[in-house]
Each structure stands twice: as structure tokens, then as C-alpha cells.
């Protein structure tokens, strides 16, 4: 079978240690979390880091907890734990929607939220989920921590705000009243990457949309933040007509490319359909929450 090229391996025993190792080893080093994106690329020899810093044993980064009005998720929290979290299912059900269709259950036992976000594959679901949920991420380096909103997280294809010598440590979700969210995905087969996927979150207050987040997977070179559609929805009462308009914007504002999963027009069409569905599901959940 395919095998990775040789590398040096270092097991981190603390976040500080991992950051120190990154600083010491420089750009030839890569952090490895669940490894289900990086190791296949290394086997295909598409990635050949000289050093791997393994953070799998950093139990301090594996948690989902409520703190200061937020849900805080440690970067090493695995997909399976996101799927099972009742807290997330109650407050941000789009996580459970997404986690039932991310890869397969066995892969979900290894893959992590931090790894998914840092891989920043535009086809990956959690980047859109976190964008729609208006998450903030905590990035730690030798100089200390900084908090970055998802709107500033994706800086290019497979590129994020996480800089050299830094590690993403936590995802924060602010809990607000009247929240509803949903994730919709179409795939060629269970476990496949999305042909297209849409994440949405709505916060309804007094029958109108107080705030909204919408993001798309697999229909651009990065996760697409649908800011134009968000602006359209804000301040209006949720309705199917409104969501249909948001779907039209989604079709217009995405930039898919043709591949084995489908041609461009189909993916634009799906972006619209799935945006509508995600919004409808979010609204139904938000209204039941508000009621």
C-alpha cells in the first residue's frame, strides 16, 4: 500500500510544548491531529513534512463546555463527540446535522474540529457550520492568545488566519435566544465529500430575524460566507419567499468549478436549493425555540 515519506515525530504533551516545537522546527513542521486529511496526502506524497508534531494526547483540548454565555469546544474534540453532544444539539443543532454526514462513523472517531477548520478544505462541512454559527476561534502562539471571528478565518484556499508558530485551540459559540440552525448536504454517496452543502443559523426575536449566518461548502475555492443573503434576511420575518430569495443569492454568489461531482450550473442550483432548505429548517427550529 501507499506509505508516507520519512519524517521526524514529536509527541506534544502540552499546548505550550507544541507551540515551542513549531517555533523550533519552523516551516518544515506540521501539526497532526486526527490525521485523516494529512496522512492520506502524505501517503500520496502530496504532502511531505519533515516533522510531525502530534497533539492527539492533548486531553486539555478535548472538551465541549458552557462558559460565560458561550459554548466552548476544544480543538481536539473529535467529530463523534460533536455528534453526541446534547448541549450542541440543543443550542446549535446544525452541528448534529453536519456530523451525521461528515465522512463515516469510524473516521469521525479520529477527525477533530480543529483539524477540520485548519485543513480549510472548501468542501469540508465544519468550516461552513462554524461560519454560519458565527463562531470565534482562539489561536494561541508564543506571544499569547488571540480571538478571530470565522469571517476573518479563511484567508485563501487551504489557508487560514492561523499563522506560523500558532495553534488553533478553541472554538467559541455565543448562545443567544431564539436560535435555530441547520445544515444540508448533497453527496454522491454516504461518506463522500459534499457536492454542495449549506449551513444556516438564525436568531429570531419577536418574530423577526435578528441575526443570521449562512455559509456554503464545496462551491468555491474557500468556504463561501453568504453576506449578501444575510443582509437581505436581517430584520425581516422569516418566510419561504424570503428564503427563496436567499437561495437565488446563494446560486449567484457561489463560484463552483466542474468536477466529477457535477457541472457548475448544477452546483449553483444546489447551493440555492440547500440554502433554502437550511434556512427553512433553521427557522422552524428557531420558532419552536422562541415559542
Amino acid at each position: 500500500m501507499q506509505t508516507p515519506a520519512p519524517f521526524e515525530y514529536e509527541r506534544a504533551t502540552s499546548v505550550e510544548g507544541a507551540i515551542a516545537a513549531l517555533e523550533r522546527l519552523g516551516s518544515d513542521a506540521r501539526i497532526i491531529a486526527g490525521g485523516h486529511s494529512l496522512l492520506p496526502m502524505m501517503k500520496l506524497r502530496l504532502a511531505s513534512p519533515e516533522y510531525l508534531i502530534d497533539i492527539n494526547d492533548l486531553a486539555e483540548l478535548a472538551y465541549i463546555r458552557e462558559q460565560d454565555g458561550e459554548i466552548r469546544i476544544g480543538a481536539m474534540t473529535r467529530h463523534v463527540d460533536l455528534l453526541k453532544s446534547e448541549l450542541l444539539a440543543r443550542r446549535f443543532p446544525l452541528f448534529r446535522d453536519a456530523e451525521t454526514v461528515i465522512a463515516d462513523p469510524v473516521v469521525r472517531n479520529r477527525g477533530t474540529i480543529g483539524g477540520s477548520l485548519c485543513q480549510a478544505d472548501a468542501a469540508e462541512d465544519l468550516s461552513a457550520v462554524c461560519s454560519a454559527a458565527k463562531a470565534q476561534v482562539v489561536i494561541r502562539g508564543a506571544e499569547g492568545e488571540r480571538v478571530v471571528g470565522m469571517e476573518d478565518f479563511h484567508v485563501g484556499p487551504f489557508m487560514t488566519a492561523v499563522g506560523a508558530g500558532e495553534i488553533l485551540t478553541e472554538v467559541r459559540l455565543r448562545m443567544r435566544r431564539g436560535a435555530g440552525s441547520g445544515h444540508e448536504k448533497v453527496e454522491r454517496r454516504a461518506g463522500d465529500w459534499a457536492i454542495a452543502a449549506a449551513s444556516a443559523a438564525l436568531w429570531v426575536d419577536g418574530g423577526t430575524i435578528d441575526d443570521v449566518g449562512i455559509a456554503l461548502s464545496a462551491v468555491g475555492v474557500t468556504t463561501i460566507h453568504l453576506t449578501r443573503a444575510e443582509e437581505l434576511l436581517r430584520g425581516k420575518p422569516p418566510s419561504d419567499e424570503l428564503f427563496a430569495q436567499a437561495g437565488v443569492i446563494a446560486s449567484e454568489d457561489c463560484s463552483p468549478s466542474a468536477d466529477g461531482r457535477g457541472p457548475i450550473d448544477y452546483k449553483r442550483h444546489l447551493a440555492g436549493v440547500l440554502t433554502q432548505r437550511a434556512l427553512r429548517r433553521s427557522a422552524a427550529r428557531a420558532l419552536s425555540e422562541e415559542a
Partner: peptide, 12 residues
């Protein structure tokens, strides 16, 4: 927990 042993390093 079930894992795919082709995508786990022995070192892990």
C-alpha cells in the same frame, strides 16, 4: 473506539 489503522501512526 473503531479506527482505521491505515490512517493512524504507530507512534500515536
Amino acid at each position: 473506539r473503531p479506527v482505521k489503522s491505515c490512517t493512524v501512526l504507530t507512534a500515536m
